[in-house]
């Protein structure tokens, strides 16, 4: 292989902590080295290294047959990725921003998600990219797309909150035989508090298993992605009042680790669901009904949710701050539930 390795894929092997973005890059790199069937497709991911430079240096190392710059045609290249997956390859498609996945909605939901069902075999492929607000990107560079796909049987949806999980879950997603939508919150990419030492071995985190990010007995907060960090901040503040909060990081939204949520609610009796996605049709509704089905008898208060408001993502900072759920919102809702 020619040249020096890009620095952002060697943090762990150098024994240094990695950012969330570097963890993603390490996962891609390691999987491409491990398995020649893995290849990348996306807009500007080759010569330019990607909009966020996740794949900087990949083209030089792996060559243009495995790092493919595509036209601006998300539907077309996602469909082509499906064809390659049919033939045994393992494509990883990058959406420059996940907002741009909507042109591929048709092929993802009608073709890719139904492949196994139709008898056309599994389609091992990953569609990954940056999501989320807080970057003043406005309505078309800030969305959370999970619920556009959550309703589609046959897909998996992953949304990590830490660098270690990002790496481990992405490696699992690439090895999984099902199509996986992998969301990466931009606010975590280079966040200093997300920089951490990653496991040096072949770090794989199984899909479909939630993580207890903080143990507690008074209140369960179920959340994922950037909101895990909001929830942990809120839990710390509530903790100063003696409230012991349990924070469940879902990690994988589809399949949903229902058992982990039920177990926590059975312990705390109170449930608050926090997501950055907008309110109506958000995952909080689905979690609430599942708890209603399985753990209603354990509830000692209403199930509440803290979410973005039902609006496109605003461009102005003041508007976006109002739109997004804040730590203060989580604390307020938490206090209400604890006092209920």
């Amino acid at each position: 292989m020619p040249g020096e390795l890009p620095r952002h894929v060697t943090r762990t092997r150098e024994g240094r902590p990695a950012t969330f973005l570097e963890a993603i890059a390490e996962a891609l790199w390691e999987e491409m080295e491990r398995d020649s069937r893995v290849f990348l497709m996306g807009e500007d991911i080759g010569a330019y290294g990607g909009a966020f430079k996740v794949t900087r240096g990949f083209l030089e190392h792996f060559g243009q047959s495995r790092v493919i710059d595509t036209p601006i045609a998300e539907g077309g290249f996602t469909g082509a990725a499906a064809g390659a997956a049919h033939m045994g390859l393992r494509p990883v498609v990058e959406m420059q921003f996940m907002d741009f996945i909507s042109p591929a909605y048709d092929v993802l939901t009608n073709y890719i998600a139904t492949s196994l069902y139709r008898g056309a075999g599994p389609l091992p492929m990953v569609v990954r990219g940056p999501v989320g607000g807080g970057n003043r990107g406005g309505p078309f560079h800030s969305q959370n797309v999970e619920m556009a796909f959550f309703h589609t049987p046959g897909l998996r949806i992953v949304y990590p909150s830490t660098a270690a999980d990002a790496k481990g879950l992405l490696k699992s997603a690439i090895r999984d035989d099902n199509p996986v939508i992998f969301e990466e919150h931009k606010g975590l990419y280079r966040a200093p508090h997300c920089r951490e030492m990653l496991p040096a071995d072949d770090h794989v985190v199984p899909l479909g298993k939630a993580r207890v990010a903080m143990e507690g007995e008074d209140l369960t907060i179920v959340t994922y992605g950037l909101m895990v960090h909001h929830a942990l901040e809120a839990a710390a503040e509530l903790g100063r009042d003696g409230v012991r909060v349990e924070v469940i990081d879902l990690r994988t939204l589809l399949p949903l680790d229902e058992d982990a949520i039920v177990a926590s609610v059975q312990k705390t009796g109170k449930l608050l669901i926090v997501h950055e996605d907008t309110r109506t049709g958000g995952i909080a509704g689905e979690i609430a009904i599942r708890i209603n089905e399985r753990a209603f008898e354990w509830l000692d208060g209403p199930i509440l949710r803290v979410t973005a408001i039902d609006s496109p993502v605003p461009f102005s900072g003041e508007l976006e701050d109002y739109f997004l759920p804040s730590v203060a919102d989580v604390v307020t809702a938490g206090r209400y539930l604890v006092d209920y």
Binding site: F39, G79, G83, A84, A85, V107, G121
Partner: peptide, 28 residues
Amino acid sequence: QRRGLIGWDGPPGTMTQVLAGAALAFAQ
């Protein structure tokens, strides 16, 4: 797939996308 048959699904044009990717896999 063992016999090289792949079902036609999706609106017109979808399978040209999919077969383009399959052909790419052959070339790769």
